[in-house]
Amino acid sequence: MTPAQCRAARALLDWSQQQLADTAGVGVVTVRQLEAGSSQPRRATMDVLRRALESAGIQFISQGDEAGGDGAALKP
């Protein structure tokens, strides 16, 4: 998950950074730093953030997918 994908996923869900942090069980500073690209969280932290978003209905799109680029979408 890229910083842009994280921001896009939150926007699709209409979640604040705090809501994502609370749902994933991480600090809001972690979400801020990830989205700003100022630090790369540990793999385990990235996993819980991604799972929180996917559980809420987000589907991540990677460059190899049909869409042609990285992104995030609501699951159909």
Rank of each mutant, 00 (worst) to 15 (best):
R10W: 03
G27A: 11
V31Y: 00
R43S: 10
A52Q: 05
L74D: 09
A67D: 10
I61K: 01
L53G: 01
W15M: 05
G37S: 09
P76D: 12
R50C: 02
D65E: 13
L53M: 07
M46T: 08
C6E: 04
A73K: 11
R43G: 06
R50D: 04
L12Q: 07
A36S: 15
A56T: 03
R42L: 13
V48H: 00
G69F: 07
V31P: 02
A67W: 03
V29Q: 13
L53K: 01
G27V: 03
R43A: 08
S16L: 01
L53R: 01
M1W: 02
K75Y: 06
M46G: 10
A67L: 08
A24W: 08
Q18N: 13
F60T: 03
T2R: 07
V48L: 00
A36C: 07
A52T: 08
Q59P: 00
R42D: 12
G57P: 08
Q5P: 08
S39C: 11
Q19T: 13
Q40S: 15
C6N: 11
G25D: 09
T2P: 05
K75S: 12
R32V: 14
L13P: 08
R32M: 12
S38P: 00
P3S: 05
P76H: 07
G68V: 06
K75R: 15
D14G: 13
R43D: 08
V48D: 00
D14S: 14
S62W: 13
V28F: 00
L20H: 01
R32K: 14
G68K: 08
A56Q: 12
Q33I: 04
L20C: 07
S55V: 00
A4G: 08
V31W: 01
L74A: 12
P41F: 05
A67G: 04
T45A: 06
Q18K: 13
G71M: 07
D22M: 11
Q59L: 05
L20S: 02
E35C: 05
I61S: 02
D14A: 14
A9K: 02
T23W: 02
D70Q: 10
E54L: 01
A9W: 06
A11E: 13
Q40I: 10
